[in-house]
Design a protein around this nucleic acid. Sequence first.
DNA 1: CTAATTGCAAACTATTTGCATCTTG
DNA 2: CAAGATGCAAATAGTTTGCAATTAG
Lengths: 155, 155
Amino acid sequence: MEQQSLNRAGLKQCIIDGGLKATHQRIVIFEALEALHGHHPTAEDVFQLLKPANPSISLGTVYKTLDSFVEAALIRRVLSEEGGKRYDANTVSHSHIYCSNTKEIIDYEDAELEQLLQDFFSKRNVENFEIKSFAVQLTGNKVEPDKQISIKPVN
Amino acid sequence: MEQQSLNRAGLKQCIIDGGLKATHQRIVIFEALEALHGHHPTAEDVFQLLKPANPSISLGTVYKTLDSFVEAALIRRVLSEEGGKRYDANTVSHSHIYCSNTKEIIDYEDAELEQLLQDFFSKRNVENFEIKSFAVQLTGNKVEPDKQISIKPVN
DNA sequence: CTAATTGCAAACTATTTGCATCTTG
DNA sequence: CAAGATGCAAATAGTTTGCAATTAG
């Protein structure tokens, strides 16, 4: 269910396989993206996570690196309604739920749904387009998430 | 297939029904959004379209109006990978195709697909979420659109 | 009339760019 | 060592805000 979390050597190899130089900055940025799995961070989020342990890293480098990673298909840019750029190290085909209240983007992995769409689009011909991938975007609201979590009192 | 295009009186009524004051600016902005149906314009796009005929309109008003319209559910904000805010006057449930080459967002209306998903999610229970809507996001490339169009030579 | 809306300009936030310096392969 | 990457600072988008003047209901 969880994607295999990679160690630095593994991450380094991924970066090289993507045709990029494996600099220290790129390795720690990739590592941060893995740590933020499911959180769909912005460049700023990644930068903030890295800064304490890497005080010399620059925000500009984070921006450039994220672009390079997307270009190399190591990560994806996530669609956003809010107009900021977000990133996702999870490259397995999956869908997202957009919470209208909290503006969170939550991963939704549903094998049955993926299969259903796979079947549909293998039959269906979309005119003038070569379809590379698809994902469902669900919009809704978290149902009382705080209440659920705090239901069991801490004694 | 096409959504009914409304005249100014109709647009004005929509705005009022949305609980907003029907100012001249709002009417022409709504009109511009209808004219740009399928183009998923930015605030700037709308502004540029309006300026010639409405030289006194301000970009700030366009931003505020688009926000009000989204709030009132008269239009939708469209998800974007590129990080800008785009708007869609088409409020009928439909999907979008994202062209990797041109970065265009193209409407994809497929009744069978909508029905398929409707059925799927009426059975499927998404944990902790009340799903309000769904849409499929297709990613791909336009297949030689220029070539296709120019195949018939103009003699 | 009065509450909401507009236009304008200034303020912000997010992102990109140019370039001298440093690093990886 | 050469090509490519980094850090920094300045530049550029894109969007929001505050407020006096205006307008719709």
